[in-house]
């Protein structure tokens, strides 16, 4: 693989994390304009851990995810009773606060005679872990996709579990879910925490991939993009947001010949797509049909029992 392809694939992988984090919240019926904040927190936390404290990468990524998740829980609690536009704007306000705070954030120490660390609006350079440890671009690509595979597996399990059903139930009708005895507050904060941690891992990977972050990377554009990926790719499965990222970054690469006009073409295509498929390409109905087809042709698929029947009622058939 040449460097260029590795670079594009790495970008797709890293951005998938933040797309998945926005998607998880969409499942619970909340629109977040603020996932970039946790991406930023993860990026800075993990970057500081390796570049300033000399931690190993694995620990730094876990640390970034933990801090991202904790921050998301802290935001999730006061915004619990907000819905729809109110929630979206509250997360936007929080994310912008975080971005501006990173513009003010200076924490530099001297390592080997050079100042290292976040330097306000000038950004955080020299997150050199992959260079100091001779990790080449391809190895890092494998790492990104290994982690992404784990996360996707987690999503597959989530969709099959009681927790996944509860998330979608809350997304469908919160009051009804409450009447079923589901603790809404508990589950919404949990979803916020998981999605913050996901964005945090993505941020940590991003910081080490580019070796350089600055606050304005994490502005509203990134947040709205990550939200849009789920909607373009489809809200029926966790592969939806991945498909969205792939379409945005991948397909845009292939229409490079039209580089001056690509956002004009792409923006128009997305708008038209959403008219035809308002819940994305892989929406609940498509996923449901594929699942049914799969069960019919596959001899060893689970037979629809009480459990799966229930889930189909809950997740399919949204008008």
């Amino acid at each position: 693989m040449d460097d260029y392809l590795i670079g594009v694939l790495s970008n797709i992988g890293v951005i998938s994390f933040i797309a998945l984090s926005a998607y998880l919240l969409l499942l619970t019926g909340e629109i977040s304009f603020g996932q970039q904040a946790f991406f930023a927190i993860g990026a800075y936390a993990a970057g500081i851990a390796t570049a300033l404290w000399g931690w190993p990468l694995a620990l730094a990524l876990v640390w970034g995810a933990a801090i991202g998740g904790a921050a998301a829980v802290l935001v999730g609690i006061p915004t619990l009773r907000l819905h729809g536009l109110y929630f979206a704007i509250a997360t936007l306000a929080f994310a912008e606060m975080v971005r501006i705070l990173f513009e003010l954030f200076r924490y530099q120490i001297t390592i080997d005679g050079e100042l290292v660390g976040p330097d306000g609006a000038d950004g955080f350079r020299n997150i050199r872990y992959i260079f100091d440890n001779n990790i080449d671009a391809f190895q890092f690509l494998l790492l990104i996709y290994a982690l992404l595979a784990v996360v996707l597996l987690g999503f597959v399990l989530l969709e099959r579990s009681r927790l996944g059903v509860i998330f979608r139930m809350i997304g469908e009708d919160e009051t009804l879910a409450g009447l079923q005895g589901v603790s809404i507050a508990h589950h919404k904060v949990l979803a916020a925490g998981i999605s913050g941690a996901l964005a945090g891992i993505g941020g940590g990977l991003y910081a080490h991939l580019t070796t350089y972050v600055e606050p304005r990377i994490f502005d509203v554009m990134l947040g709205v993009h990550s939200l849009a990926y789920g909607l373009i790719g489809g809200l029926g499965t966790a592969l939806g947001p991945l498909l969205g990222v792939l379409i945005d970054i991948g397909v845009l690469e292939s229409i490079r010949a039209l580089s001056g006009y690509r956002m004009i073409i792409f923006g128009g295509l997305v708008a038209l797509l959403l008219i035809v498929r308002p819940r994305g390409l892989l929406d609940e109905n498509v996923v449901h049909k594929i699942g049914r087809f799969w069960r019919r042709i596959s001899p060893w698929a689970r037979r629809p029992g009480l459990n799966t029947g229930n889930r189909n009622n809950l997740t399919g058939g949204r008008p």
Partner: peptide, 27 residues
């Protein structure tokens, strides 16, 4: 493009669609 053709209940789709058009207008 983003609002008239959308059915009731496709509020997020309208919003994301208007974001796509934002990119278009900016370019």
């Amino acid at each position: 493009l983003c609002f008239a053709p959308m059915k009731a209940g496709a509020g997020i789709a309208s919003m994301v669609s208007s974001f796509a058009i934002w990119m278009q207008l900016e370019q």
